[in-house]
């Protein structure tokens, strides 16, 4: 039991903001990086409200006209509907399918467990085009390519493994004796799951679900290969608009980009209430909160 919490290495000096030139250089580089990101976001927002912007620091005038233009011309109601259905659908299905597997992988040892692990890891390891293109071909053959269902199915491929990976540490930290205790009290298997495991796993399910939502909304490749002209997700619609510019006013494209940005931010800040930033990239539970 060492009672010290904060431990600084070194003497009384050399702490806090008294830093070396090298450290200041790093801070400057970091500030430059973040400044550029902020500027990139700012240009998109500013341009979406501009009447015209050819050179100069800011647009010549401001209007919200392009939002209504984008809303109609890009068919955004449909696009947002598709995006929402796909994201929520994928999250729900991935949780239903992935959670039991995560439980088994966390709790049990059985022959072939390593193979099972590899199977769940591999979809996250190979580039999405590698399985995306043949999968899209198969889905078109089955007649669901180019539809909302096809986009949903394709997005399940990285999502089920994501749930398994994100959830296993949550299962591992639940004391196995709790399940034994529930059984000793006379609970049946289904009751153990419903009354003991599910409530304890709720934070894990929530964060895994949010991770899948964030991933699916941002997933470009798989949605792009499987999306038809009427069933695009927002990121795919944005890509198409950017890919064939000229025929549409750039402000309208930026207006769509702003809408996408707002959707991402809303989801992100919801997610950050339940998961740490680290968890969002590494899918590992951050215990050092």
């Amino acid at each position: 039991m060492s009672e010290e919490v904060a431990v600084a290495t070194g003497g009384r000096v050399s702490r806090g903001w008294v830093a070396t030139p090298g450290r200041w250089l790093l801070r400057a580089a970091l500030a430059f990086f973040l400044l550029n990101i902020a500027a990139i976001v700012a240009t998109v927002v500013l341009d979406s409200f501009g009447t015209r912007w050819f050179g100069g620091w800011a647009p010549h005038g401001y209007t919200s006209h392009y939002y209504s233009w984008a809303w109609q011309q890009f068919g955004l109601p449909r696009v947002l509907f598709v995006t929402g259905v796909v994201a929520v659908g994928v999250a729900v299905i991935a949780l239903l399918v992935g959670a039991p597997a995560a439980y088994i992988l966390a709790r049990r040892s059985f022959p072939g467990k390593r193979v099972a692990w590899a199977m769940f890891l591999l979809p996250l390891l190979v580039p999405p085009v590698t399985y995306g293109i043949p999968l899209a071909t198969l889905l078109y053959r089955l007649g669901i390519g180019g539809s909302l269902l096809g986009v949903l199915v394709a997005n399940l491929v990285p999502s089920v493994p994501l749930v398994v990976l994100a959830l296993t540490p949550y299962v591992e930290q639940i004391d196995p004796t709790l399940e034994g205790a529930a059984r000793a009290c006379g609970a049946r298997t289904s009751q153990v799951f419903r009354r003991v495991l599910a409530p304890l796993l709720l934070p894990g399910l929530l964060s895994a679900g949010l991770l899948v939502l964030v991933q699916t909304i941002g997933m470009f490749e798989l949605s792009f290969f499987t999306a038809g002209p009427t069933d695009q997700t927002l990121v795919v619609a944005l890509y198409y608009a950017l890919w064939a510019p000229g025929i549409r006013p750039p402000q309208a494209i930026d207006a769509m980009a702003v809408i996408y940005m707002l959707l991402c931010l809303a989801l992100l800040f919801t997610a950050l209430r339940f998961v740490s930033p680290t968890q969002m990239v590494a899918q590992v539970k951050d215990n050092r909160k």
Partner: peptide, 27 residues
């Protein structure tokens, strides 16, 4: 003990080893 080792900086006071002051030295 951490203070003596220099792992935790002192808020006040001094540590001496004979005639040399050690609390200002890094660990």
């Amino acid at each position: 003990l951490g203070c003596v080792a220099g792992l935790i900086p002192l808020t006040a006071g001094e540590i001496w080893l004979d005639d040399s002051r050690v609390d200002t030295l890094p660990t």
